[in-house]
C-alpha cells in the first residue's frame, strides 16, 4: 500500500511531548516501568502527581529520579543512557543479573520503547538498521519479559512512510510483544494478534489515520 502521496496532505497530530503526555495518562498508580530512549524519556515530565510510578533502569536502579541538578551529579549514579540521575526515597540498587531477573521474570508492569516499525500482530523492530552500527542493549530482554510493551513513535518516518506495517522489514527485536502504540496521530492496542485503533489524536480523523497506516487494523474506538 502506498501512503506517500496521501500523507503529503498536512495533518498535525500530537507533538513528541504530547505523545509522552498521552502515554503517561495511562500509567496506573503503583506501576513499575522501564523507559527506553527517545520519546519515552519525556514520560516522567508528565506523570500525574497523585500516582506513584517507580522507574527501573537496566543498570540496576529501581526508584530512579530525575537529573540531580548541575554540580550534584555522581558518576556512580547514572541511568541506562549513562546520564546522571537521582534516587527517590525508598529506591533500591541491584546488580545487572538481578536487574534482568526483574525484567525477564515479568516483575515490571510496563516497558515503554521507541520503534522503527511495529507490525500488525505486534512484532517490534527497534534495535538495528542493517549496514549501520549494531547495538541491542536490553531491548530484547525487556520485550521478552514485560507483560505490557507500549511503543511511542512518530506515525510515519521522515519520508512519510507508515511505521505501522503488515510485516517488519527491519530486524525484529521481539515477536508479538507490543501491546499498545502511541503515535502523533492515534492510539492502537494489539489484542490477540490483532491491531485495534482505539483513539485518534485531537484534530485527527479516522480517515487521516487510515490514509497514513500501512498495517491492517480494526476500528474499535473508545466511545
Amino acid at each position: 500500500m502506498t501512503v506517500n502521496a496521501v500523507a503529503a496532505a498536512t495533518v498535525i497530530g500530537r507533538s513528541r511531548d504530547d505523545i509522552a503526555r498521552r502515554l503517561a495518562e495511562d500509567l496506573v498508580d503503583g506501576y513499575t516501568v522501564n523507559l527506553g530512549v527517545g520519546i519515552p524519556l519525556a514520560v516522567p515530565n508528565f506523570l500525574p502527581d497523585d500516582r506513584e510510578i517507580s522507574l527501573h533502569a537496566e543498570n540496576g536502579i529501581l526508584g530512579m529520579g530525575p537529573h540531580p541538578g548541575f554540580g550534584l551529579e555522581d558518576p556512580d549514579l547514572t541511568d541506562a543512557g549513562k546520564q546522571p540521575v537521582s534516587l527517590k526515597v525508598g529506591a533500591a540498587i541491584v546488580d545487572s543479573a538481578t536487574s534482568f531477573a526483574i525484567v525477564r521474570g515479568g516483575h515490571l508492569d510496563v516497558t515503554v520503547l521507541g520503534a522503527l516499525q511495529v507490525s500488525e500482530v505486534g512484532d517490534l523492530s527497534n534495535w538495528y538498521v542493517p549496514g549501520r552500527n549494531p547495538a541491542v542493549g536490553g531491548a530484547m530482554d525487556l520485550v521478552a519479559g514485560t507483560p505490557e510493551v507500549w511503543v511511542c513513535m512518530e506515525h510515519v518516518d521522515r519520508k512519510g512512510i507508515s511505521k505501522l506495517v503488515p510485516q517488519c522489514t527491519f530486524p525484529v527485536t521481539g515477536f508479538r510483544v507490543v501491546t499498545r502504540i502511541y503515535t502523533d496521530l492515534a492510539v492502537f492496542y494489539v489484542v490477540d494478534g490483532r491491531l485495534l485503533l482505539k483513539e485518534c489524536a485531537p484534530g485527527v480523523s479516522p480517515a487521516d489515520v487510515r490514509n497514513r497506516t500501512a498495517a491492517a487494523y480494526t476500528e474499535d474506538l473508545f466511545l
Binding site: E58, D95, S96, A97, S99, F100, V103, R104, P134, A135, V136, G137, G138, A139, M140, D141, G145
Partner: peptide, 15 residues
C-alpha cells in the same frame, strides 16, 4: 569480532 548478545543474556551468562 563482535559477539552481540542481549544485555540480560550477557549478565546471566556471566552469572
Amino acid at each position: 569480532e563482535l559477539e552481540l548478545i542481549p544485555q540480560g543474556t550477557l549478565a546471566e551468562r556471566l552469572r
